[in-house]
């Protein structure tokens, strides 16, 4: 039997498809008994689908550093 904290971590791993088969099995088993965790898992999955849908982009840290440098030169 795993704790809720562990279940949450596995759930997060599963969002990035990085949970192992055994972990997923443990999570499923836990979700059968724990109402709170199954609610949280649902929310978490929803967040993942939102992030996918939004088609997010971001700048890399290097790009940001370069921008900062250029801005500072101007100052």
């Amino acid at each position: 039997m795993i704790s809720c904290e562990k279940a949450a971590i596995i759930c997060n791993k599963a969002q990035y498809r990085e949970a192992t088969f055994i972990e997923k099995l443990k999570l499923r088993f836990h979700l059968l008994m724990c109402k709170t965790c199954s609610k949280a898992t649902k929310k978490n999955t929803q967040l993942t689908s939102l992030c996918d849908k939004a088609n997010l982009h971001s700048l890399t840290e290097n790009d940001k550093l370069k921008m900062k440098e250029i801005l500072q030169e101007k100052d």
Partner: peptide
Amino acid sequence: QPENWVDLYADYLFNYAIGRISDS
């Protein structure tokens, strides 16, 4: 506060721009 601009807004502005110009 221009010194915080890049940290706070760079990604937000970038997402706004990329919605209008698809060339990153």
